[in-house]
Design a binder for these strands. Structure first.
Length: 304
DNA sequence: GAGAGGTCTTGTCCGCCGTT
DNA sequence: AACGGCGGACAAGACCTCTC
């Protein structure tokens, strides 16, 4: 479509033309538009130049529209009404009809914690909405949120995401996991025994230190990690078939203890709890669809 | 990115002119 | 004479471009 004519016609000229068609008088059109008669006269001159037509001619007490002006009346009125409607209507999000796709960046553990409740809610209220979970890479997460590749990141408190908005989703604590019938672990796990065992360690980001080691160090103790993995899901299987001990988020321990021959134990030293937050870019603050998603995240009953 | 300076757009004022 | 449209002069502000 060639927009050359549209490009040099501004909306105010079209509004003036519409008012003239309605009033058939420069003075009354001016009053309707809230400008002086002269301003409408200037606008009419511009319209005449651009359209190459007189548009209105003086005829006994009124400005009579030419055939060209009359031909424009209908489409102009229709177009302006559609535009008005589009500008007035606030963008809406109808979960029942939406086919929007939301992308959440998170770990497999948080995905496992959050997804069941979230998916159930979507099936019920928003059957057309799609949910995609992608890995929360520590580098580039802020950028992915900024450019809109990711709608929200579900991660622990993280300094690198300072400019983003966030909301706490749930608190999490640590537990220990060993296999049923582990020969070295009795009813209660002592700190001495804990340090004597070989450990499995989950490092989702592949970097940094575990929370456990500095706390052991404070006490003049240490432990030996013989299995390191970036994925939450792999470690419990290893623990179920070995004498390794795993210190991990309690939800993970409980989840796998339901399906595998595993025991969940209280850690022999106090480990600081942490929280999982939903982070998003401020640009989504007022977006109805995003607000709806955030409301679902905030009100869902997550796996405990 | 901020500021300066030139240009363009828009609207008012006001006098002129044609019609009734 | 009154009314209403036309258009030139002007002002204000928006916009654009250039320079630092």
């Amino acid at each position: 479509m060639d927009h050359a004519l549209l490009a040099r016609t501004n909306l105010n000229l079209l509004l003036t033309l519409d008012a003239l068609l309605e009033e058939r008088s420069v003075t009354r059109a001016a009053a309707r538009l809230g400008v002086t008669q002269s301003a409408v006269s200037h606008a009419l001159r511009q319209l005449r130049e651009q359209l190459g037509d007189r548009l209105f001619v003086r005829a006994r007490g009124a400005m009579a529209p030419t055939p060209r002006a009359l031909a424009l009346a209908g489409p102009l009125r229709q177009g302006l009404r559609a535009l008005q409607q589009a500008l007035e209507d606030a963008p809406e999000f109808d979960p029942a009809r939406s086919r929007r796709r939301f992308v959440l960046a998170t770990t497999d553990l948080v995905a496992a914690t959050v997804s069941p409740a979230l998916v159930a809610r979507l099936r019920e209220e928003a059957p057309g909405v799609e949910l995609e979970i992608v890995p929360a890479e520590s580098t580039g997460l802020g950028e992915a949120l900024e450019v809109g590749e990711v709608d929200a990141a579900l991660v622990p408190a993280y300094e690198g995401l300072g400019a983003l908005e966030r909301r706490k989703l749930f608190d999490e604590t640590f537990s220990c996991l060993v296999r049923e019938g582990h020969p070295g672990v009795g009813r209660r796990l002592t700190l001495k025994r804990y340090c004597a065992l070989d450990h499995a360690l989950i490092r989702p980001t592949g970097e940094g230190q575990s929370v456990v080691d500095p706390l052991l160090e404070e006490r003049g103790l240490s432990r030996r990690v013989t299995y390191r993995v970036r994925y939450f899901a792999a470690a419990p299987f290893v623990v179920a078939r070995s004498d390794l001990i795993l210190t991990a988020p309690t939800r993970l321990c409980r989840l796998f203890a339901e399906a595998l021959p595993l025991r969940v134990l209280k850690p022999p030293l106090p480990l600081p709890p942490f929280a999982i937050y939903a982070y998003w870019h401020p640009r989504w603050r007022a977006d109805p669809g995003h607000r709806w998603l955030r409301a679902q995240l905030a009100s869902a009953h997550f796996t405990r």
